[in-house]
């Protein structure tokens, strides 16, 4: 299974900017998300009623398809931990202030977690498989696993993304994760996963794993490498997120020859941010600078581990 297109809206200059991994800026206090001009991607009428999460999802989805001139994907799959959190909060505020009066249904209609995936299909007029995974910090990994099933069942191209919205309630997330030195982020990253290799360059997704509620996360990376007959010193780059203080020491003992990057410094903490890391990995692989094999190591929540293994082919 190959990654044939990628598109992200993030705190980096990532949208339609191949090679953005060369220009990474650590998130500072003033840094904001970089939104594109949505007008080429979403009709004005639709743009007005869409939440930021929907706009980001639709723009990235359409950008992905246009990169490879694909009219229709065989499936649309989204991973989002909190879904349409802006509309959810808006509707709660309306309930609180209505005091028995009438409430407009607009926010309720847009509040379901599958709004992003649903709106993509609606705009594309796509009648295929459409689903949304909401598994906490492993939402995107689960969406990717579902995509691998689709490819296994004969799908040629699957549109898959990770997205979470800017929601002020989440500014307390790092406190809950006991990692107060990291900034909260948000964004969307979408991909086309394909059965066949499209280009001279392609990144092969060798493994996608998702482990929830596990006591000892350390054993799994080794297992996955063994299953794929890859030695730990063949991994050129590890993109990681973790809430453990000594994670760098642990990872460097296991991957002594790999470069280590804490990817959350560039996209911020959000529960589907391993999708940003996958795009970052894809961008590194695309540049011929010696990075051939990358592991995305998502340990944002201590008992949950996501692993994505990809290789330049």
């Amino acid at each position: 299974m190959y990654i044939s297109a990628a598109s992200s809206i993030s705190f980096q200059n990532s949208f339609r900017n191949k090679g953005f991994s060369d220009q990474l800026l650590e998130m500072g206090d003033e840094q904001t998300i970089i939104y594109p001009d949505y007008s080429p991607f979403i009709p004005a009428m639709d743009r007005r009623r869409m939440s930021e999460g929907t706009k980001m999802s639709v723009a990235c989805a359409i950008d992905c398809l246009s990169q490879i001139n694909l009219q229709q994907p065989d499936a649309v799959i989204v991973g989002t931990a909190l879904g349409s959190s802006n509309h959810t909060k808006k509707f709660l505020d309306k309930i609180a202030s209505a005091e028995g009066g009438l409430i407009s249904p607009t926010s309720f209609i847009q509040s379901t977690h599958n709004t992003f995936a649903g709106q993509i299909s609606l705009l594309l007029k796509n009648h295929g498989y459409n689903t949304t995974h909401t598994q906490n910090s492993l939402s995107f990994e689960q969406a990717l696993i579902d995509s691998t099933l689709c490819i296994g069942e004969g799908a040629k191209n699957v549109l898959v993304g990770g997205v979470d919205e800017n929601e002020p309630i989440l500014y307390h997330l790092p406190v809950r994760l006991k990692k107060s030195d990291i900034k909260v982020g948000y964004g969307a990253s979408f991909f086309v996963l394909s059965l066949d290799k499209k280009d001279d360059f392609s990144a092969k997704l060798l493994a996608v794993e998702s482990y929830s509620g596990v006591k000892n996360v350390n054993v799994f990376a080794d297992q996955v490498l063994q299953q794929n007959e890859i030695k730990s010193d063949e991994i050129d780059l590890v993109l990681y997120s973790s809430c453990e203080q000594n994670i760098e020491v642990e990872l460097s003992s296991f991957f002594p020859k790999s470069s280590l990057i804490d990817f959350q410094k560039y996209c911020g903490v959000y529960l589907s941010n391993s999708s940003f890391a996958l795009h970052l990995a894809f961008d590194f692989l695309q540049q011929e600078k010696g990075v051939k094999t990358v592991l995305v190591y998502n340990n944002l929540i201590s008992e949950n581990l996501g692993l994505l293994l990809l290789k330049r082919v």
Binding site: H133, Q135, Y211, S212, G213
Partner: peptide
């Protein structure tokens, strides 16, 4: 979030590892 409820349920059953929550 939805996923935490599934993690709680799986944990009560003693299932760990593969957990997902669909929301459509």
């Amino acid at each position: 979030d939805n996923g935490t409820t599934s993690e709680e349920i799986a944990n009560e059953l003693g299932i760990s590892g593969f957990v997902s929550t669909l929301s459509t």
